[in-house]
Design a protein around this nucleic acid. Structure first.
Lengths: 199, 199
DNA sequence: CGGTATAAGTAAACAGTGTTGACTTGTCAA
DNA sequence: TTGACAAGTCAACACTGTTTACTTATACCG
């Protein structure tokens, strides 16, 4: 076997075979298969076979198939540069993100979500991810009164656009002129962020 | 457990065999369980048990479990009274619908929409349903240029709010004052419907 | 250098899923 | 009364994720 002994940094306390390398192989295979075919469509045994390891190792290293998914997802950055910039430009940055990223190809995670959004495991992981990686940072960034509600409205729109895209699969949103769509979404997102007591 | 299987009539040996009645029992049990727990969480055997029926009958009558869900969601009216009224009041009516109906219990169709992507066949069903029962009526009602795009934005918001509600499970949207939420949503929906040529 | 503790890796089973085909049984028309 | 045929049943199939008891390789220690 090709045993790339990477005695790198940290506690290299791996006895026996290379624990970290095996972990990584499972993770790589899982990411690849989840991205290509979706979470629910890929079985644990198939991931194990692709990684060249025994099935039981998935549960040994990741607790369960869900844990494997959680780790794959946790690797990805959600909003790369959304929070870099001033508050006033936030709606436009979000709109551009939606149109040019979410609406287009999407990230590996998004594609996995589109394939198997019905799976309870995936929903659970997605749920936690949305909260900690999107909702809470966004609420903190916009600040002000009712920041949580405002952020929820924005995230609703973002999630909904993704959902509709996969439901429509080539409908009005995808056919529409992207630049104009950005303008429209910017206005809508701004509307989500405004409003409130001074109604 | 309100599982009264044999309250009088039933496909036991006593009563005669009634194809339509049996079909309906399966459908009723499925709708109830899907609504309460979701599609993936409910097994065929559980549906059959709740209906007091053999498992194989599900596939006999509905082809497969997915066919059962397709029939459940096909029964529902989506927007009962949204299109009764003037165009100006549409945003508010939609907002009220979201806050007082979608945000509450949630219908099987709504759940199905959120879960639709996992099954290709089901996806097709939902796609047509969203288009013919929501998107197209809405687009026809609002009229004007880019009606399809405007309608898509609105539907995105509606779908997203439903999704986020489940994701948050008692977060900002549910805790927020309903009347104020209606006001906010009215403004956002109006923003979805406006915009366009004046860019 | 050899033994051994210990972790990595394995095999097989478990309980569950959706689905299928062969079977039995009830009902109704001839 | 008796077939015919549909309605309903049963057991099995091929999967799934997960767990348990087991084997095996290796890094440390005497």
């Amino acid at each position: 076997m090709t045993n790339e002994v990477d005695a790198g940094p940290g506690p290299d306390r791996a006895r026996g075979r290379d624990r970290e390398a095996t972990r990584k192989r499972i993770l790589d295979s899982a990411r690849e298969l989840f991205t290509a075919e979706g979470y629910a469509q890929v079985s644990s045994r198939r991931i194990a076979a692709a990684a060249g390891v025994n099935v039981a190792l998935i549960n040994r290293y990741f607790g369960a198939k869900r844990g494997l998914l959680a780790e794959v997802i946790a690797e990805e950055a959600v909003f790369p540069k959304i929070f870099e910039g001033d508050r006033a430009g936030l709606p436009r940055r979000l709109a551009e993100h939606v149109v040019y990223r979410s609406l287009g190809e999407g990230t590996p995670l998004q594609r996995a979500l589109e394939h198997s959004a019905s799976d309870p495991d995936l929903r659970q992981v997605h749920k936690e991810r949305v909260k900690s990686a999107i909702l809470e940072p966004l609420a903190a960034f916009i600040g002000g009164p009712d920041a949580g509600t405002r952020a929820s409205l924005v995230v609703s729109l973002l999630l909904g656009v993704g959902t509709l895209k996969r439901v429509e699969s080539g409908g009005a949103l995808l056919d529409h002129d992207p630049a104009d769509l950005v303008d429209r979404l910017t206005a809508v997102i701004a509307a989500c962020l405004e409003g409130g007591p001074a109604r």
